[in-house]
Amino acid sequence: MIEFSAYTQLLVSYAILGGVYGLTALGLSLIWGVMKAVNWAHGDFLMVGMYTAFWTVTLFGIDPYIAAIVAFILLGLLGMVTHVIAIEPVVEKPGGHEATLLTTLGISVILESLALILWSPSPRSYQNVYKNTFIEILGIRTSVAEAIAFVVSIVSIVAVDQFLKRVRIGKAIRAVSQNPIGARVVGIDVPKIRLMTFGLGVALAGMAGVLVSTFYPNIRPLAGYVWDIASYVVVIFAGLGTIYGVIFAGIIIGVTEGLGTIIFSNAFRQILVYVVFLTVLLLRPQGLFGKALRRV
C-alpha cells in the first residue's frame, strides 16, 4: 500500500507537469497553425522564462506569479523581435516553412549560448514559500507551487481559447490559420497577425517557464531541450489546431512519463513517451483529438 500511494503521488506530479506541457504546446500549436512554422527555439524561450523568474524574484524580491506576468510581456516582445528576424523574412518564400526550421534552430543556438555566457552553466533555483507548502486533496499531497502551476496552465489555455473564439483579433488568428488567402481577401493584415501570433506563442512559453521554475529547482541554460521534445509530442498527439486537445494530451504525456519512471527509471522515462507517440503516429496520424486533414 505504501508503494501504491507513492506511485499515485508520482503520477499526480507528472500529470501536473503535463498540464504545463499543454500550455507550452499551445504556443507551438498556434504558431504552426498560423504560419506553418516549426519553432525549434520554443524550449529555449521557456528557459528564458525560468531565468526571468529567477532574476526578478532574487533581485527585486517580487512574487513569482507576478514574475509570470513580467515574463509573458517580456517574452512576448522577444518573440516579436525573433519573428521579425527569423520568421517573416522567409515564411512566404518558396520552401519558407522548411527554412523556419533552420532559422529558429539558429535562434535556439543564440539563446542557449547567450544564457551560458551570461548566467553560467550551473543550475540555479530560488526560494519561494509555494514549493515548501503542501496541501492535500483527496488524499494526494502536492505542493502549492505545483497545484497553482496546474490551475494557471489550464486557466490560461481556456483563456486563449475564449480569446480565439470571441475577440476580433483572435478570430482573425483563426481565419489566417484556416485560410490565409481568404484572410487576405477580407482585408486582414496577415503579416501583422503572424507577428502577434508568434509573440503570443512565445509569451505562453515564457509564462510556462516561470510556472515550472516555482517547483523545479533546476534553472539552467539547456533546460529547454526536454520541453521542446515533450511539447512537440503533445502537439502532434493532440492533433494540430485543437485547443482543448492540448490539455488532455499534455496530461497523458505527463502521466506516461511518470509510468516510464516507475517501469524503467528516471533517466529512461521518455522511452515510454516515444513508444506511445510512435504508436499514435502509426494508428492515428491526425492526433487523438484532431480531425483528419481534408480539403474543403
Binding site: 484572410a183 477580407v186 486582414i188
Partner: peptide, 20 residues
C-alpha cells in the same frame, strides 16, 4: 474556390468580411 473559413460559422465568416 471561395476561400471561406471552413471551421467558422456563417456569422463569423461574415464578421471577418467586415474586418476593415
Amino acid at each position: 474556390g471561395r476561400q471561406l473559413f471552413p471551421e467558422m460559422t456563417v456569422l463569423d465568416n461574415l464578421e471577418m468580411g467586415a474586418y476593415t
